[in-house]
Design a protein around this nucleic acid. Structure first.
Lengths: 214, 214
DNA sequence: CGTGTTTTTGGCACGTTATGACAAATATGC
DNA sequence: GCATATTTGTCATAACGTGCCAAAAACACG
């Protein structure tokens, strides 16, 4: 496949798409095993066997055991950034973040994982350092992905402190909303929880109330 | 030591303090090895040997290899929370956060790690998932520690969404400032970088500018 | 002191994670 | 079909982290 590697530029190869599908399958399998037996009680061999592959092959798809759930936690975030770039330029930054997030979740996460599964998975995160790390890492990555989109929107450099802080704040709000939603028993959807948090941030929050000294 | 265990309540035992000292020593030793040889090239046995203890003993002080640097990253944060609770009640929340952080860093971090070492350590974090996880975890923990202090200050419940978001936002600002400081080559101190970030947040930031739709 | 007790430390074995190297199987080209 | 890449599996291996039990050290008490 030296000369035949020529393909339409920028588009994922067929093998690459199959690879992604496989990753998705293994991810869901791993998540199921984790929620059923617990994280530590599930060995990589278990995941590999349940996925119909050898242990060594598993490690060709995932760097580590905990990486299996990265895509589950991060589903929709990449889409969020993408939609943010295309959002109505007339919107304020926070409104753009809100609407694009709502769109992303509704369209992208649908089909990959449903709310119940995600909640079950998120609930086993606490106490498992490796899983917690994955969760935090997903949102830390999201922060970096948001920066260019925000920068383009406000006409600033992606490295500017203000841009970094805006990305960090919006992103943290989403994370906190998700954590709160996962921990609680409320019937509301994850999307609603995020919308509420972003609205609170839009209102200035507690930090914006103390402009006056006393 | 059944009857002799009686000690002044709430104060750390002598053995507990010695234990903490040992942890500090091992932490600094590990950090030195990590920055010298790299993280992967440093085995736990290396750290144990350099610390004058057996491998098995190391694991009685630290859960995992990467935990050695937790205290280095988190130094001062516990103090931040403590000082926040004692800060002038007349101050606005963000001003209280700023002043208490400045105090904490100046008093608490002095002696444990200097800025140069911290910067060197932080620079090897990227690319090492385990170290990155520690870094993020430290700040995630900080978020939870901040909540009660903030809640007490504003007369709210620590579980309130607004309190969570305030803690998350302030905390994220500190983290971003530290990351930015570590990545750059500027001569400024970490403390200055954090002060700048918190000031930006106090001003509302980019997220506060778009109240109007168009 | 010396002795008995408790805690800390060390050695050992073990299962698991993760990776390099090479062979077998499979897919893809002509 | 056949030749060639690519993927997958097997094996070996190093490091991580923990349970278990014995040696050593710290400690209380007479």
């Amino acid at each position: 496949m030296t000369a035949a590697t020529r393909r339409s530029p920028g588009r994922p190869t067929l093998t690459e798409r199959r690879r992604e599908d496989t990753r998705g399958e293994v991810s869901r399998t791993a998540a199921r095993l984790f929620t059923e037996r617990g994280y530590d009680a599930t060995t990589v061999e278990d995941i590999a066997a349940a996925s119909g592959m050898a242990l060594r092959t598993f490690y060709r798809y995932f760097r580590a055991k905990e990486d299996t759930i990265t895509r589950l936690f991060g589903t929709g975030i990449g889409d969020w950034v993408h939609r943010l770039a295309d959002a109505d330029p007339g919107l304020g930054l926070l409104d753009a973040l809100r609407t694009s997030y709502a769109e992303a979740v509704r369209h992208s996460r649908a089909g990959e994982v449903d709310d119940a599964q995600l909640r079950a998975l998120m609930r086993i995160v606490d106490g498992h350092p490796a899983l917690r790390a994955v969760w935090l890492n997903v949102y830390r990555d999201s922060e970096d992905q948001l920066r260019p989109a925000i920068a383009a929107r406000v006409g600033r450099d992606p490295d500017d402190l203000a841009v970094r802080l805006a990305a960090g704040t919006a992103n943290t709000a989403v994370r906190i909303a998700m954590e709160r939603w996962a921990a609680g028993d409320g019937p509301g959807s994850a999307e609603e929880a995020v919308a509420q948090a972003l609205a609170e941030v839009a209102g200035g929050g507690l930090l914006g109330e103390g402009e006056n000294g006393a």
